[in-house]
Simulated scan of single mutants.
Amino acid sequence: MQFNLDPYRKWAWLRQEWVLQGDKEKQRWFDNAQIAVKELWETEYKGRWPVEMLPPPARKERNPDPAFDRQREHKRIRIDAPVSAADLYDQYISTGRLHDEQAGCDEAIAYWLSRYDSQRDFARFALDLFAISL
């Protein structure tokens, strides 16, 4: 199911172009496909290749000022907090599609390659699905 991971199409495009009003068989297939893709993400990819967030190199302060210790501590706590605990698939699916009438498979693959370092497990999921020829 490449369509749902193509940022120019997502599930909305497939629903609009393929699922016809009143066609219960296509609607059932569409619903099952959404469930199957989500299940595949959760069982085979989610959390499998997490991105390692390396701490920035420690900088030595010349003359530490105790008056600013609390501010420095506050900054460090905020920086060390996890980026997001949200499920990447749910987050992606809930956002709008990118709009580019000329976009095709190459652009979608470039989109996921550009996210490989920041969303490794989700990018691998998308790229693996694009590798399946239809």
Rank of each mutant, 00 (worst) to 15 (best):
P55H: 04
R115P: 03
P82W: 02
D65C: 05
N4S: 13
G22D: 08
V51Y: 02
S118F: 09
L129C: 03
R48I: 09
E101T: 14
A58P: 04
P50G: 04
I35D: 04
G104P: 03
F130D: 01
L134C: 07
Q2K: 15
R124N: 06
R28H: 14
L134N: 10
L127Y: 05
A33Y: 10
Q102L: 10
L5C: 07
Q91A: 07
R9K: 15
Q34K: 14
E61D: 08
Q91R: 13
K75S: 10
Y116L: 15
K26I: 10
S133F: 09
Y111K: 01
W11L: 02
V83A: 07
M1S: 15
M1Y: 11
R72Y: 08
D117I: 10
R59W: 01
G96I: 05
K38A: 12
Q119K: 11
L5N: 08
H74E: 14
E61P: 04
D6T: 07
E61R: 13
I109A: 00
D31A: 09
D23N: 15
F122P: 00
L5Q: 06
V51L: 01
L98E: 01
A86C: 07
R72Q: 11
I132K: 13
E17W: 09
E17V: 11
R62I: 12
E44S: 12
Q21F: 08
Q71A: 14
F3G: 05
H74N: 15
I109H: 01
M53K: 15
I109C: 00
P55I: 03
Q102D: 12
S84F: 04
K46A: 12
D6Q: 05
E25K: 14
P55K: 09
P66D: 00
L113Y: 09
S133V: 12
A81D: 03
P66R: 07
A12H: 10
P56W: 04
R97P: 00
E101P: 03
A12R: 15
W13K: 09
R70I: 07
A67F: 04
S94F: 01
Y111N: 00
D6S: 06
P66G: 00
P82M: 00
S94Q: 09
D121R: 07
W29E: 12
V83D: 05
R115L: 06
E73R: 13
R76H: 13
N4L: 14
K24Y: 06
W13P: 01
Y92E: 02
A58M: 03
R120C: 08
P55F: 01
A33T: 14
R124C: 03
I79P: 01
Q102M: 11
F122N: 00
Q34S: 08
G47N: 06
R115T: 07
R120S: 07
I35S: 06
